[in-house]
């Protein structure tokens, strides 16, 4: 059997992951708070020339099909919404993580970003069916970030996928998380949580990263959000994923305490995920490097 890294080595590697850009960090902090204004989001974008250029390119991309060119930041932010602004800032700031080849999960380049974007859209759509008030934009941002731990853990799990899947098939472990823990001492939600602490992410987003496969363990104040991401992640996997861990997790049936979701509504969510994913991915891909 291949000698695997220790938990301590992985934690040391997490500490070396570059910090998010100041704009991305500030946007995450701001959009996670309940009492912010859109003008504050606009101000952050205005103060970051690179982010401004990217936001304008995206809003004016063919995918959005606007008749008139948007040339000001406030109109662009108003049109895209703060969830997309946070998503763009995150992708730009941590592109090396989101778009790397997931060797430990036999996933091609950008597989993590594609899954995260689908999860973000699905989480926001599911949030519309919450039984209590929820910040839908925050559900989107949490979806973008939820699986970031896989980018870190992947490097330590090379050539492990068949081993983990065999353990699941033989009922030796209950899901992919347990397989990860067996191999390297921690799973991708724990690795992501360590990264969230290093990045000083807001508690709500850190909770989504840590508990999205075990939402019942979430502190009560974040449970509504985390169940949205839990379901969003599952919907994203149902929509298709080229990663060895796809669908190798459990649905927590207690989501019904927090969400009303009929099978027809679930189908509508999937439809929206596929449609929005094509639009957003096209807009974000077509505007890179131009």
């Amino acid at each position: 059997m291949k000698q695997r890294a220790t938990k301590e080595e992985i934690l040391a590697a997490i500490k070396k992951v570059p910090l998010l850009s100041p704009s991305a960090s500030r946007l995450l902090e701001l959009t996670a708070s309940s009492d912010h204004k859109l003008s504050e989001v606009i101000d952050i974008v205005r103060c970051d020339a690179a982010l401004t250029a990217r936001v304008l390119k995206i809003v004016n991309s063919v995918a959005y099909g606007l008749v008139h060119e948007v040339s000001t930041v406030d109109r662009a932010v108003g049109y895209l919404g703060e969830r997309m602004i946070a998503g763009i800032a995150l992708e730009d700031s941590a592109a090396a993580l989101f778009h790397k080849e997931l060797k430990g999960y036999n996933g091609p380049k950008s597989e993590l970003w594609n899954h995260d974007l689908r999860t973000a859209i699905a989480s926001r759509e599911i949030a519309k069916h919450a039984k209590q008030p929820i910040n839908q934009d925050l559900a989107f941002t949490a979806g973008i970030l939820h699986a970031v731990g896989k980018a870190v853990l992947s490097d330590f799990l090379t050539q492990s996928a068949n081993e983990v899947l065999a353990e699941i098939d033989d009922n030796e472990v209950t899901d992919y998380l347990a397989g990860e823990r067996n191999l390297v001492g921690l799973d991708h939600t724990e690795a992501g949580y360590e990264l969230a602490k290093s990045w000083e992410l807001p508690d709500s987003l850190a909770a989504a990263i840590r508990y999205h496969h075990n939402p019942a363990d979430t502190p009560e104040e974040h449970r509504l959000l985390v169940y949205a991401v839990h379901l969003g992640c599952i919907v994203a996997m149902m929509c298709g994923s080229q990663s060895s861990d796809s669908l190798q997790y459990h649905l927590d049936k207690n989501y019904t305490q927090y969400y009303d979701l009929t099978s027809e509504q679930l189908a509508m969510v999937m439809l929206e995920v596929n449609e929005m994913f094509d639009t957003l991915q096209s807009a974000m891909t077509d505007t890179k490097g131009k």
Binding site: I234, M238, L247, Y249, H250, L251, K253, L266, A267, M270
Partner: peptide, 16 residues
């Protein structure tokens, strides 16, 4: 038509 691990088949769009 794959599905998530869910003995209740709540999310089993694949089967449908």
């Amino acid at each position: 038509g794959a599905k998530i691990m869910d003995p209740n088949n709540t999310f089993n769009i694949g089967k449908r």
